[in-house]
Amino acid sequence: MLAVFRSNPHTVSFSACFTQTYFFLALASIESFILLLMAYDRYVAICHPLHYPARMTISYVSLSVGLSILLIPLFLILLSYVKILLSVLRISSSAGRAKAVSTCSSHLLVISVFFLTTAGVFISYRIPGTSVDSRVMGSVIQNVFPALMNPIIYCLRTKEIRDSLAKTLNKSSIFPGSK
């Protein structure tokens, strides 16, 4: 940013703007959660001083921060889908409603898998006897499943892309079909 101000150009490249915006928003989000955690720390220290050592353990702090990071986006996602549902209910044709539900269903599946496994992994640290293997499996599902589903959700649902993929696979030696 300082280099841009110093050289006084009239434009900023897209990559520089994107990088600056990313770091600004990411660091502001982190700062917000740090301030939230500090406020909770002060609340417990002042309002419940005898419970402070029990409430402010590393397992409780990480659970609180982790669930906060999950719950805020989840709340906004649910709010947007409530609005979508209200709009879908206003569609008069059943074909239009079916298309709208079909468009959202795969995304809702990915959201559900991601948030449920993530919450499960966070909560499993508070449950004694939970195996490390189950936590690792949950973490793998939470990180890999949405990334694997994105091409299906956003690409293969488009007829032109499906046709192009089928044409490419038919030409290849992997899936030879009728040419």
Results as ranks from 00 to 15, higher is better:
31 E>H: 10
33 F>L: 06
73 P>Y: 03
149 M>E: 04
24 F>N: 03
178 S>G: 06
63 L>E: 06
10 H>N: 09
113 V>I: 15
55 R>E: 12
97 R>Y: 05
156 L>N: 10
6 R>H: 11
108 L>G: 10
33 F>K: 01
134 S>T: 09
169 L>Q: 07
74 L>W: 02
140 V>H: 02
160 E>T: 08
175 F>W: 14
131 S>L: 01
20 Q>Y: 07
57 T>V: 03
68 S>N: 03
7 S>N: 08
75 F>Y: 10
54 A>W: 08
92 S>Q: 13
157 R>Y: 07
113 V>C: 05
128 P>C: 02
143 N>D: 10
78 L>H: 02
132 V>C: 01
119 A>Y: 05
48 H>N: 04
77 I>N: 00
128 P>L: 07
49 P>V: 12
66 G>Y: 10
6 R>C: 09
51 H>M: 15
46 I>K: 07
85 L>G: 10
120 G>W: 13
80 S>L: 08
18 F>I: 00
22 Y>V: 01
75 F>P: 00
67 L>K: 11
28 A>K: 02
62 S>R: 12
63 L>D: 05
141 I>L: 01
58 I>C: 04
103 T>L: 07
119 A>V: 06
10 H>Q: 05
68 S>I: 02
58 I>W: 08
57 T>Q: 11
106 S>F: 09
156 L>R: 10
48 H>L: 13
55 R>T: 06
83 K>C: 05
105 S>N: 03
23 F>G: 01
2 L>Q: 13
29 S>I: 07
18 F>Q: 00
5 F>Q: 11
92 S>K: 12
124 S>Y: 06
2 L>E: 13
11 T>H: 09
145 F>L: 14
86 L>T: 06
134 S>L: 14
45 A>Q: 11
101 V>A: 12
11 T>Q: 11
121 V>M: 07
175 F>E: 05
68 S>T: 13
157 R>L: 00
8 N>H: 08
87 S>Y: 10
53 P>W: 12
149 M>V: 07
135 R>Y: 02
70 L>E: 13
7 S>G: 01
179 K>T: 06
88 V>H: 03
46 I>V: 15
144 V>P: 02
162 R>Y: 03
132 V>A: 04
